[in-house]
Design a binder for these strands. Structure first.
Lengths: 141, 141
DNA sequence: AAACCAAACGCAACAATGTTGCGTTTATGT
DNA sequence: ACATAAACGCAACATTGTTGCGTTTGGTTT
């Protein structure tokens, strides 16, 4: 296991147990630069293949801020490591979600979307969620 | 039925049959100012309560541009009337989707979100999808 | 108005995602 | 080494959405 000490630290900090399944889940996340669904994880993991266990670990990781929901549609939720834990996210505290039209992966990428909202006063806008769509490097012609 | 003639016209224009179920589906949409899921429709309708029929009608309506997907999450897809058919959308050709944190309804509202995207050149951004979140008039304190 | 036909319907069956309950195992602190 | 709560694993279930197929029906043609 590659990022073993990083993973052990991460679990320790949050008071979570270092079980084989949870360690491998985080390892899988650290070895991918795109977001993963529960089903993705179950297929990629070598130890333990019970969906329920994975679902419960995902919820726990999200509650502890280790993971966040990167995208969500009728086919389910995809999670990604939060910035400060993600080896692919070095330079920013904030990221944007990009969904590739080619490979359909969800990437957490660096960048900013500057925006100004003008809507009817019948609605109080507290947040704006952006998702970018297009082609990633691998899928560009 | 209130909007009967409007509904008959709409179905005629698109070469769709004026069946009781489809007429009532459109009627339900016209009597709501927020987006509806297949399940919402099944519960609100008085004639025909087969999920499959509703699903297939939704697909057909979307293909004909009568409806569009207003929001989508793990709990399913919500549809809304396209602007030109929607009695609640008088003044604009474009709308924005607003999801209320209180009632969790999805509204198609008038307004604009000006935005500028700055991201790594590893990703070619073709479209930007955004959703506004906050509180609607009914849910404001 | 009778016949025709494709559109629409309705039922059964299925797949996938996600959740809950409950008994068992195991990581971890004492 | 022991105790205990966290984590696991299994069965069962709910919901959304899809597919196949036979039947009904709206709309057209004759």
């Amino acid at each position: 296991m590659d990022n073993e000490s990083k993973i052990r630290d991460l679990l320790s900090v949050h008071g979570l147990r270092k079980t084989p399944i949870r360690k491998e889940m985080l390892d899988v996340f650290m070895n991918h630069d795109f977001a993963l669904s529960a089903s993705d994880l179950v297929h990629k993991m070598t130890v333990g293949n019970d969906r329920v266990t994975v679902y419960r670990a995902l919820v726990s990781f999200e509650e502890h801020g280790i993971l966040h929901k990167a995208s969500e549609d009728k086919n389910g939720v995809k999670y990604a490591l939060s910035d400060h834990n993600n080896p692919h996210e070095h330079h920013s505290d904030q990221h944007i979600h990009f969904i590739c039209d080619g490979c359909h992966q969800t990437y957490c990428i660096e960048g900013v979307v500057e925006h100004q909202v003008k809507v009817s006063s019948d609605f109080q806008v507290d947040r704006v969620n952006f998702t970018l769509h297009g082609l990633c490097k691998q899928c560009l012609p």
